[in-house]
Every structure is written in C-alpha cells, then in structure tokens.
C-alpha cells in the first residue's frame, strides 16, 4: 500500500454528489432569498443564448459572441455576485423562446427587469415592442417615436446595448435605406430572426 493510493482515494471526485449538492444549494438559496441572479444557457438557431433573471424578471439575454463568461462577470459586478446556474428558474423564458423559434409565438409574455438600461436608452427599449412581429422600423422612426427625432445615433446605441435582445426586439430596427444594419447578435442573426418572422 503506497501513500499515493491513499491520496488518490482522498482526492477522488464525485460528480454525482457535486451535482446533487449544487441543486440543493440552489433550492435553499431560493428559499432563503439569497439567489439574486439565476441563469442558464439555451441552444437556438442563432447559437447559444445566455438567459439571466432576478426576482423581478428576465434581466439579461446574451449571444455567444458577447462572451457569456464576460456577461456573467458584469452581472456579478452590476447586479449582485450571488449568481448561480439555476435552469429551473428560467423554464418559462426558455419555453417562450423555443416557441418563438418554432414560429408558434409572436409576443413574449414575460416579466422584464430593465435595471441594466437607463435614461434615454431605456425609453427607446420601451418603444421597441410597438414594432410588431414581422415588421421593421428605421432608427429614425424609433427616434421620433421616442420623442427625440434627432437622436438617431442614440437609438443605434440603445439597440447595440440592449440587455434583452430578442425579447425586446431591437432586431426589428433597420436602416432607413432598407439595409439591415448592425446587431448585438451579429448581422447574420438579425437576418435569421427577421427571416423567421416574415416567413411565419
């Protein structure tokens, strides 16, 4: 019997127990009101989406190209470091997004937490659901609707920094010349989303 065997035995990992304890931690954290940010990822036709929620509602949706790890670090800094992977807490969100992608949902019915967006940007985001499913509006039109017709650039910034893309439909905001313009999820994702909505 060598000491090595002893230490191997002592350092053996038990993934099943780790998973079980993680689930138990999430459950007690929820019960004690200590889970400030719950998150999960969801595979979709536009790649893996990070979904995060507070007790107020969905607080963040992020594309893979936005770097999920970085997004979680920001949530930890800006909302609370009490962040845990808790897929069950996002069941409804995930289901509605899946329904959106299979074409059976045109409006999201979810509590939203806009705390990551402030001021004029938030005003802009609040107008976006007015652009119906399958339609588009120009940055200029959105600026006008938000009450600041000259703030076309600011509308672009509001869309580019939308903490809740997809659910708050900044993908429906396009250029005045009809071209799609940029998108937080990448131009390709914007094309997929608008294509999906016009096909339905």
């Amino acid at each position: 019997m060598s000491t090595d065997n002893l230490f191997t035995a002592l350092s053996e990992d038990d993934q099943e127990a780790n998973d079980r304890l993680h689930a138990r931690l999430v459950a007690t954290a929820v019960a004690e009101g200590l889970l400030d940010v719950a998150y999960r990822t969801l595979d979709t036709p536009v790649g893996s989406l990070l979904l995060a929620a507070t007790d107020r509602g969905l607080v963040r949706v992020a594309f893979a190209r936005q770097d999920h790890e970085e997004v979680l670090a920001r949530l930890s800094a800006e909302v609370s470091p009490r962040v845990l992977a808790a897929p069950d807490r996002l069941d409804t969100v995930a289901r509605q997004i899946e329904e959106y992608f299979d074409g059976s949902r045109t409006i999201f019915d979810l509590p939203l937490d806009f705390r990551l967006s402030r001021g004029f940007r938030r005003e802009v985001l609040a107008r976006l659901p007015d652009i119906g499913y399958g339609r588009t509006a120009s940055y200029a039109a959105v600026a006008k609707a938000a009450g600041s017709p000259k703030a076309v650039r600011a509308v672009g910034t509001a869309c580019a920094t939308n903490p809740l893309p997809l659910v708050v439909p900044c993908h429906r905001v396009v250029r005045s010349d009809g071209s799609l313009g940029a998108y937080v999820g990448g131009a390709e994702a914007k094309e997929v989303l608008l294509g999906l909505e016009t096909a339905a």
Partner: peptide, 27 residues
C-alpha cells in the same frame, strides 16, 4: 464605478466559486 475596471476589482459570480472549490470542500 469605472466600468472598464470592474472585472478586476469585483467578485466573481458565485457559481464559479462553487465550481472551483465545491469538490475540494466536499472532500
């Protein structure tokens, strides 16, 4: 806070703490 410096000075998401240290603490 200065946004650009946030990741250096702030706490990691607790999930990372569980992932990194949970197995050792269990042992």
């Amino acid at each position: 806070p200065d946004r650009a410096r946030l990741p250096d000075v702030s706490l990691k998401p607790f999930e990372e703490i569980v992932a990194e240290h949970g197995p050792t603490v269990l042992r």
